[in-house]
């Protein structure tokens, strides 16, 4: 494999994705192409309904496109079966969701342990690693509390800890700041940037929150189901429609 191939973390080419019946078809992605590199934090931005979340789902292997090729760390996802895709996600992906998706009946530490337990790690080992990463996100002392007892920002920090606890090479963040105020959102993005920064890791953030664009290395703008342009400087983007 060439050095270039190693630097590419995610590559999607000619991806078509539509929903509904043939008579009532909604096109979400139309010949979409996308590339993300190792060591970078790339944002996918665009107006509502432009296909950001669908593209993110395709990259995450939770949706299989009708056409096109998706490659993550050299592994073609479009040909994989459900079991292989599940195993791929288990090993390689960390998720930060818009609505946190922390299980309210579990403790903070137990929530963070979930990816490790899914991987089949022993409970005690998972617990120790969860405590360590919760310390990193500044939640030491809150490990045995319930997520609902935390503020929105703290809950998102728990979600970040959960996304990174198993050290995945690809971190997928879906609108991570949409439920947070400006300052908290900025803190969270700073934390994502600080904790996930690694030459081997790629972070893909879907957002329409232009206040956090400054945390991106590159920004890919989407329009009508495809990437319309990729910029290095957020100032180059017209954010009025976001």
């Amino acid at each position: 494999m060439s050095r270039l191939a190693h630097t590419v973390a995610v590559r999607a080419t000619g991806v078509d994705m539509f929903f509904g019946t043939p008579e009532n078809r909604v096109v979400a992605l139309k010949q979409a192409g996308f590339e993300a590199r190792r060591g970078e934090l790339i944002m996918l931005v665009g107006p509502s309904g432009c296909g950001k979340t669908t593209l993110l789902s395709v990259i995450a292997g939770t949706l299989t496109p009708q056409a096109g090729a998706v490659e993550v760390f050299g592994q073609r996802l479009d040909g994989l079966g459900q079991e292989a895709l599940t195993a791929f996600r288990r090993r390689n992906l960390g998720f930060v969701f818009q609505s946190f998706n922390l299980i309210p009946t579990l403790t903070v530490a137990e929530n963070v342990m979930v990816p490790l337990l899914i991987q089949g790690r022993p409970f005690d080992e998972a617990h120790a690693r969860a405590l360590a990463i919760l310390d990193q996100v500044g939640l030491k002392g809150r490990e045995e509390g319930r997520p609902n007892a935390l503020s929105g920002g703290q809950q998102q920090r728990v979600a970040i800890a959960r996304a990174l606890v198993h050290e995945p090479p690809l971190l997928i963040c879906d609108e991570p700041t949409s439920a947070l105020d400006k300052d908290t959102g900025a803190q969270i993005m700073q934390m994502v940037r600080d904790l996930s920064r690694s030459p081997e890791r790629c972070v893909v953030v879907v957002t329409h929150d232009h206040r956090i664009f400054r945390f991106a290395d590159r920004i890919a703008e989407m329009e009508d189901g495809r990437i319309s342009r990729v910029v290095d400087d957020p100032k180059l983007l017209d954010t009025t429609h976001l």
Partner: peptide, 18 residues
Amino acid sequence: ENLRYFAAIKAMGAGMGV
């Protein structure tokens, strides 16, 4: 009530068997 959490667990890589 826990459906979205199960969906999240699925997304994180838990198979239907688990």
